[in-house]
Computed example of a mutant assay.
Amino acid sequence: MGANSSRKKMSSPTKLASSKHTATVIFLHGLGDTGHGWLEAFTQIAKPHIKYICPNAPTMPVSLNGGFEMPSWFDIKGLDPKSPEDEDGIKKAAKSLQDIISEEETKNNIKSDRIIVGGFSQGGAVALYSALTTDKPLAGILGLSTWLPLHKSFPQAAIANLKVPMLQCHGTMDPMVSYEKGKLTAAVLKTMLENHEFKSYEYMGHSFCEQEMQDVQVFIDKVLPHE
């Protein structure tokens, strides 16, 4: 993933299900963050049959920040839509996410269609790319304040997830991933997915809010009901 000689191994803060584990949510944080904060957010809306995995991105130099090393799923060269993208890094990060899905299947006997993948900002970009290119059917996709990477050369979406429900959320005052970029992403996703919903949050910046998390909870409850 770009200049990554100093990459450190990814770890996964995890909230275990408090009853029999029959479903999983895998959620990726944004640039410079860790999974711990999001794990805490999901703890507030957790259901006992669901395990929540919020991996920590490896540490690597990020061009956008002058090569400073920070937790990052791939290199970001600029915020302008015309900025070059780290195609190799995006694909490797997506593969890492798909490996977590496979591990849930093989080690915990959780079928892929009982797994939600999602993320915030940069993590959401990885989740979208991963979900739309895997041949494993998923339960759902969550994209918060994010965008579709490599959209100009995006491969045909995998047939396995053309009907998978997706919830995409974005704040109207986002200074990092603009609301317009979110709406453009939604327009592209609607051409790929049959069950895509886009929700806007007035005055919300590059963050999340209580109403958004309530909507996320409703979405999770709908696609990952207790078995």
Rank of each mutant, 00 (worst) to 15 (best):
S6G: 15
R7A: 14
S11E: 13
L16V: 00
L16I: 01
S18G: 07
S19N: 09
V25G: 07
D33R: 14
H36V: 05
L39P: 10
P48F: 05
P48N: 03
C54K: 03
T59H: 03
M60V: 13
V62M: 07
F68N: 05
F68Q: 08
F68S: 12
D75A: 01
D75H: 02
P84C: 01
D86F: 10
E87N: 07
E87I: 05
D88H: 10
K91C: 07
K92H: 10
K92L: 13
A94S: 15
S96P: 06
I100T: 08
S102Y: 02
E104S: 03
T106Q: 13
T106Y: 03
K107Q: 12
K107W: 12
D113Y: 07
I115T: 06
Q122M: 15
G123F: 02
Y129W: 15
Y129R: 10
S130H: 14
S130E: 12
S130K: 08
T134F: 09
T134W: 14
P137G: 06
P137V: 03
L138I: 14
I141S: 12
L150W: 06
P155S: 09
P155D: 10
A158G: 13
I159L: 10
H170R: 08
T172L: 00
M173D: 14
M173L: 07
D174K: 05
V177F: 06
S178W: 01
G182V: 08
K183Q: 15
K183F: 11
K183M: 11
T185A: 13
T185K: 12
K190V: 00
L193V: 02
E194A: 03
N195W: 00
N195V: 00
E197Y: 02
K199P: 01
K199V: 09
S200E: 10
Y201M: 13
Y203E: 03
Y203I: 08
C209W: 06
Q214Y: 03
V218A: 02
V218R: 15
F219Q: 00
I220G: 01
V223L: 07
H226Q: 12
